[in-house]
Design a binder for these strands. Structure first.
Lengths: 340, 340
DNA sequence: AGTTAGCACTCTTTTTCATAGAGTGCTAAC
DNA sequence: GTTAGCACTCTATGAAAAAGAGTGCTAACT
C-alpha cells in the first residue's frame, strides 16, 4: 500500500459514499486531481482489487469498496473530526426544546441521530441491573397488595404490584424494605453479593416474607434486563439508494421489529468508545451488507447504555462517528445529572 | 341499488381484496356464478361506476372499488363475524406466554394485530388523565428532593422527581399528600373540580407547599396527556402489493414516526366501538389511500384507549374488524383486572 | 520500469417497436 | 332486458438495437 494507492482508494471510497455509483477510472481522474492518467488508475485499481480493498460487480462496471476497503478508510484515513460548533448548538437547542422527561432524552437522541445521518438509529437506555441499587420502598395498595418502588443510581424508578403473602402485614413489608435498603445500598443489581442475601434472610427472620423479598428483587431484575430500545429513522433510511428494493426494506424492517435481536446485536458490538462494524464483519447474517457504528456511555466508569447508527456499508462514517461521539458525551452528562 | 348490482359489487370488492388486481367482467363471470353474461356485468359495472361505487384507472382496465364502494361493502354487506374459536385460543395462548408486565400487554397486542392482518397496527395505552385519581405518595430522596408517585384507577403508576421548596420539610410533603389523597380520591384527572383546589389550599395552609402540590399534579398531567403509542407491523405492511413503491413506503414510515400526528389521527377516529374510515374519508392527506379501523376500550364506561389497524383501502375488513373487536374486549378485560 | 494512449470487448441501461392479452363500450340481435 | 360480437384502447412483455461506461491488454512513450 504505497502513497498513491492510498490516495486512490480514499478517492474511490469518498466518491462512492457520495454517489452510490460504482466508480470508474475515467470519472475518478476527472473529478480528483490525482496527477495520473485513467490508465494508471486502472492498473492501481486492479492491484487494489487483488489486495481485497475493492470489488467488482461484473467485468465492466466501476469498482466499489469492499468491507476491507471501508475498514482501511475508517481506521487509517479518517481524521477524527469533532462535530462543528454550529451542529452542537443546534442539537443542544433541540434538546432544550423537546426534552421534558428522562424518557424523552433517549427518544430525541434517536431522532436526532437518524435525522442527521439519514440512517436508522438505536438507543439503548441504561440497564437497571447495571446501575446501582439505591432504595426500595413500599406503598400500601389494599389489604392484599402493595406497590414496590425500586430506585437506582441512574435516576430510574421502577414499580411493580406485589401481593402480600398470607399472614404478612404491611408493616412486615416496611421492615423488609428497611433491611434491604441497609444491606443492598450501592450494590450493582446484576451482581448481588451472595452474602447479602443470607444477611437479609437472617435479619428478616420470617421465611415467607423473605421469599417475597427475593421474588420482588428477581422480578425487577427480570424485567429490567431488557433495557428499553429506542429506534428512529426507519423512514429516513429509505432515502438511501441501496434500499430501493422493497424486499430488502422488508427484511430490514422485520429485523428492526425484533427487539430482542436488535439488543443482542448492539450488545455484541459494544466496545470502548466508538466501535465500527462493517458489512461482512457483522455476525448477524441479515446485516452483512450493513454497517453498524456504536458508542457506549458510562456512569462512574460502568457501562450503562449504547447508541448506534445502522446503515448501508456506504455510509458517511466521518459524520456518523463525529455525531455519535458527541451525542454519547451528551447522554453521559444527562444521565449523570439525573443521578442523585 | 337492486339485488343484482349489490351482488356484483360484492363480488368485485371481494375479488379485488383478494387479488389486488382490477376486476374485469369476464373474469368475474367465470369465477362467481352470477348467472349473467359478462356483457350484462359490464352494463351493471358502468352503472355502478356512474353511481360512484367503482373506479376506472383508464379506459380498458377492470374496475376497482372506490371509497364509497368499500363503504357500502363494509356497512351493508359485511355480516358481523366473530373471531373463530381457534384464533381466539391462539391469541390467548400467546398472551399467556408473552405478557409479564402491563406494558407488554399493549406491545403484544400490537404485534398480534399486525401479524394477523398483515398491516400496521397501533395501540394507544390508557390515558392517565382519563383515569381516576387513586393516590399520591412521596418517597424521600435526599434533603432537597422527593419522588412523587401517582397512581390511578387503571393500574398505572407514574413517578416524578420533585424538588422540596426552601423551608419545607419532608413531613410537610407527607401532610400534603394526605390532604390531596383525601380530596381527590376517585376524581378524573382531566376534570379536577375547581372547588377541590381551594379545599386543598385551605387545608395545606402554607402557600409555598400548595404551589408545589399544584406543580406536581400539573406536571403529571402534562406528561400523561401524551398517552403511549405502540406501533407494530411496519415490516409486515410491505407484503401488500400497494407498497411496492419505495417512495410511498417512505412517506408512510415518516408519517408513522410522527407520534403526535398518529395520536391525533387516532383520536379523530375514535367513536363507539368499531370505527372504519376508508380512503378519502380520512382527514389527513397522507392517508387518503389508506383505511383505518379503530376500536376503543373502556373502563367503567369511560373511554381510555384505542387500538387500530391501518392498511391500504383494499383491506380484509372482515378479518380486521373481527380481530379488533376481540382484542378490544380482551384489552378491556386486562385493564379491568389491573384495576385495584 | 513506470506511465500512458488506444482499442477491442463486456456488460448495463435505455429506447424502440411489435405483439399478446385483458377489458371496455357500443350496436344489433335474441 | 339480456347477450353476442366486434372494434378499439391501454398495459405488459419481450426482443432487438443503440448508447454509454468501464475494463484489460498491448504497444508506445519517457
Amino acid at each position: 500500500m504505497d502513497e498513491r494507492k492510498t490516495r486512490i482508494l480514499e478517492a474511490i471510497v469518498k466518491d462512492y459514499i457520495e454517489s452510490a455509483e460504482p466508480v470508474g477510472s475515467r470519472t475518478l481522474a476527472r473529478k480528483h486531481d490525482l496527477g495520473v492518467s485513467p490508465a494508471t488508475i486502472r492498473n492501481e485499481m486492479a492491484d487494489l482489487e487483488m489486495l481485497g480493498y475493492l470489488e467488482h460487480i461484473h467485468t465492466s462496471s466501476g469498482r466499489i469498496p469492499s468491507s476491507k476497503g471501508y475498514r482501511f478508510y475508517v481506521d487509517d484515513l479518517l481524521p477524527p473530526r469533532p462535530l462543528g460548533a454550529r451542529e452542537k448548538a443546534l442539537i443542544d437547542k433541540w434538546y432544550r426544546a423537546k426534552v421534558k422527561a428522562i424518557d424523552e432524552v433517549f427518544k430525541e437522541t434517536a431522532r436526532i441521530i437518524s435525522r442527521v445521518t439519514g440512517n436508522v438509529s438505536m438507543v439503548l437506555a441504561p440497564q437497571m441491573n447495571k446501575a446501582a441499587f439505591r432504595c426500595l420502598q413500599f406503598l400500601p395498595l389494599d389489604d392484599y397488595r402493595a406497590i414496590a418502588v425500586l430506585m437506582t443510581d441512574a435516576g430510574f424508578v421502577e414499580n411493580r404490584i406485589v401481593p402480600l403473602p398470607d399472614g404478612a402485614s404491611f408493616e412486615d413489608f416496611q421492615r423488609m424494605a428497611r433491611v434491604i435498603n441497609d444491606t443492598l445500598a450501592g450494590v450493582t443489581l446484576d451482581a448481588l453479593p451472595p452474602g447479602s442475601l443470607k444477611k437479609i434472610r437472617a435479619e428478616i427472620g420470617d421465611e415467607e416474607i423473605y421469599q417475597a423479598a427475593i421474588e420482588i428483587i428477581n422480578r425487577s431484575l427480570d424485567n429490567e434486563k431488557k433495557e428499553r430500545l429506542y429506534l428512529g429513522g426507519t423512514g429516513e433510511m429509505l432515502s438511501q439508494p441501496e434500499f430501493r428494493d422493497v424486499e430488502r426494506v422488508k427484511e430490514i424492517l422485520l429485523m428492526l421489529e425484533e427487539e430482542e435481536l436488535m439488543r443482542d446485536i448492539l450488545h455484541a458490538h459494544v466496545g470502548n468508545g466508538l466501535t465500527v462494524s462493517i458489512g461482512q464483519e457483522n455476525d448477524y447474517k441479515g446485516a452483512k451488507d450493513l454497517s453498524i457504528i456504536t458508542a457506549t456511555y458510562r456512569l462512574g466508569g460502568e457501562l450503562i447504555g449504547t447508541i448506534a447508527v445502522m446503515g448501508p456499508t456506504r455510509m458517511e462514517y466521518e459524520k456518523a462517528m463525529a455525531l455519535l461521539d458527541y451525542m454519547n458525551g451528551h447522554l453521559s452528562e444527562v444521565v449523570q445529572k439525573f443521578r442523585w
